[in-house]
Design a protein around this nucleic acid. Sequence first.
RNA 1: GCCGAAAUAGCUCAGAUGGUAGAGCGGCUGAUUCGUAAUCAGUAGGUCGGAGGUUCGAUUCCUCUUUUCGGCACCA
Length: 615
Amino acid sequence: MISGFDYIKSNGLKKVFALIVDGVPTDLSAIFSETAKVEAITKEHPLALEIMRHTTAHIMAQAIKELYPSAKIAIGPVIENGFYYDISCEHHFTPEDFPGIEKRMREIIKADYKITREIVSKEDAIKFFSSKNEPFKVELIQDLDVGEVSFYHHEDKFTDLCRGPHLPKTGMASVHFDIMKVAGAYWRGDSNREMLQRLYATSWFTKEELENYINLLEEAEKRDHRKIGKEMGLFHLQEEAAGSIFWHPRGWTLYRTLRNYVRKRINEDGYVEVCTPQMVDRVLWEQSGHWEKFRQNMFISESEGKMHAIKPMNCPCHIQIFKQGTKSYRDLPLRMAEFGCCHRNEPSGSLYGTMRVRSFVQDDAHIFCTPEQINSETKRFCKLLSRIYKELGFESFSVKFSDRPEKRVGSEAIWDLAEDLLQKAVREVGLEYTINKGEGAFYGPKLEFVLKDKLNRDWQCGTFQVDFNLPERLGAWYTGEDGEKHHPIMLHRAVLGSLERFIGILLEHYAGKLPMWLAPVQIVVATITNDYDAYAQKFFDALVTAGIRAELDLRAEKISYKIRNHSLAKIQLMAIIGENESTNDTITLRKMDGSQQSLSFSAAVDFLKEICKEP
RNA sequence: GCCGAAAUAGCUCAGAUGGUAGAGCGGCUGAUUCGUAAUCAGUAGGUCGGAGGUUCGAUUCCUCUUUUCGGCACCA
């Protein structure tokens, strides 16, 4: 048997963070057989950063315990870009405390304490943390279904419960970290339990990486759709209608353009569009089961002794249309779409710009079909969605498949069928997917489509859910080939999700510089002096006739002023009209980056028609 | 909903240990007609988020409340 330290020494390895012994990540202190398969984790290894961050999280906990002895520590995991530690403390942490904690952390790193692992029996571990007045650790250990746990000691200065592995000494942790923010977080993610203080930190091997990350955050802040929406004059929100959007002319133009584009695509794909009531008697929601489950989140209106709910979704209404008259298997699949405005009383703390609102419109549709049609409808939808995402400028998206949850309705046979059909269909259209075990809806399995934006952030937008419950609950049926009555399968689907949210995503993805066909103002025609107003007006009129969304700026301002003005509003193209243009019957088109080209009057109109063309 | 922070002119922000506020941009008026990201001058504009309380006096201190921001929880 040899130790990890022996191993790296005999192999002449340096700066090893940890080892992977027979496939299991372990500390350098681990003892293992000479014949074991060993891999050294150095800086380049994918696990290295994670291990380093984890140790840094412990160092932060140690620093906090030393500076605030009354602090009780909970958990401190690694997350994307860094780590956090949850702490219960009488002292309310503020960003002013961060430099002090960071300073102490750097001292701990400099002190280069040895980090050692110790195996402790469950009983002793509980005793130890009880004596240290660490109730969260005690609870964690109590809930572990094992006989012994491992401790990590920073010499005699600090001890934490942890599975590891960790760096062999604190001096190996990177000093390129930054405590970012403090926020509340429920103990064990349970909203009924104590709220702890969560300190978030980011940590990197090099200063450069840390700076890159900070820059990325700054870039994300610049792209914030709330900020860009204001700069572009798209919408506003105000106190009297929290969670609902006031769309301004430019914003509403974007909204309508996006909606009409989707409308065109689904129309081509064999959908019919409907419009259903905004308010529906509670009886229908009781039948659908929503009243029982979501009553808290529904807006209610009462009149003449009747209680209505403002619709939180469209599906029960679509079933009402389906139920009109009789349906035969020949009517299926029936693809029923609606850009219906839905209201959900979202918790106040969850509201976020246009991304999470109480009043929104989904590009919603329900496909009524037979079980045999699930496969072809799934494929059809995947193709539609792929095309729409691509045309909107999203190069890649991923698919998640959620299978049967514990609490569910429907027979095992139909779940088997639906899950198989769904997965098979996704494979057949050539999409890769990952499985979200047990995450399906109670009424059926589902697919979720996740977009990646230019900042590499994920946004779950599309959804495709098989439902073999609601049509039955609401009494929808069709006559099959066999002459018998059958309940149709209902497929709930959306490509963009909510338009409000999707517009937010688009704004952040493009940093406001939308593709021309989506831009609310495609061009501003601006004159250099008022002598050329007539020529500018003529060009502007030609553009409007050609269906271009143009605006005319005849103000007696300098051209540089106008350029700055419109550039700040993210207008990407301007027509500059001065003496040259007017005398030569040309148009100078200027892009936001300053590049420009001169075209004849008619060529300019054609050019604009071309670049503003909707896909 | 929970924890924490914030709210001052249309926007971005400054400010006073309690004596009713200030800048830049924007608006308006006038002048300027000037070729690629801010022309000059003048002027108007604020119950300092809302409601109570303490005080001779509150935008400032206290309580409540609304909204926003950062997270957590939630998201049919």
